[in-house]
């Protein structure tokens, strides 16, 4: 049974952030922490694929009205153009809220439109500036498809409003432009849900 579709009666409940934070602390234990039929406590582990880079992530579902997403991926900006020989790394946390849900096919699969704010941090390259530390706020929006086979596919866009600090001969602080310029690049994630 799809996770979000079963939680229609829980629309009025506030998200249990405490439980979500406990799940975040147990990041390396992707087993089910809850036997609740609503899907709260379900954890999805998967991979991220995008022209921006590739990596892994974990989604922690709460009350069926959203999920917290922790992502870690290699930033490949500049690799193909030979501006960089080593990819950057970045972490992100996104607190996604489901805006609209619907069913697909025979009703055993669902789609969920979501959006949410978050944070990002990393050691990345920005335009023609060599790699440096970047940190700031992030936001994403997209659609998530949950299938009865416990697989989930997500297509979303993410933008970052962050600062980029480059330390070379002198330290410079500037706006992380790639966070905005690359916001149009789609991100595809494929994950498996552990109940």
């Amino acid at each position: 049974m799809a996770i979000f579709a079963m939680n229609a009666s829980d629309v009025s409940m506030k998200p249990d952030l405490t439980k979500a934070l406990v799940m975040a602390a147990l990041l390396f234990m992707p087993l089910s922490l809850s036997a609740q039929p609503t899907g709260e406590g379900d954890v999805s582990w998967g991979t991220i694929h995008s022209p921006k880079g590739f990596g892994v992530f974990a989604d922690f579902l709460w009350t069926g009205r959203g999920f917290n997403s922790f992502g870690f991926y290699a930033d490949i900006y500049g690799i193909s153009s030979l501006k960089a020989s080593v990819p950057g790394i970045r972490f992100s946390f996104l607190h996604n809220v489901v805006l609209k849900q619907g069913s697909l096919g025979d009703g055993d699969a669902t789609y969920s439109l979501f959006a949410g704010p978050g944070l990002m941090a990393g050691y990345v390259m920005d335009r023609d500036v060599r790699q440096g530390f970047a940190a700031g706020v992030s936001g994403d929006a997209g659609v998530r498809f949950d299938f009865p086979s416990s697989f989930a596919v997500c297509i979303f866009f993410q933008a970052d409003l962050a600062l980029h600090m480059k330390m070379h001969s002198q330290t410079t602080l500037s706006l992380y432009q790639n966070g905005l310029y690359q916001a149009w690049m789609p991100i595809l994630s494929i994950s498996y849900r552990f109940k």
Partner: peptide
Amino acid sequence: IPIYKNFCV
């Protein structure tokens, strides 16, 4: 790996 009906990874 079939995910859903004809949709496969």
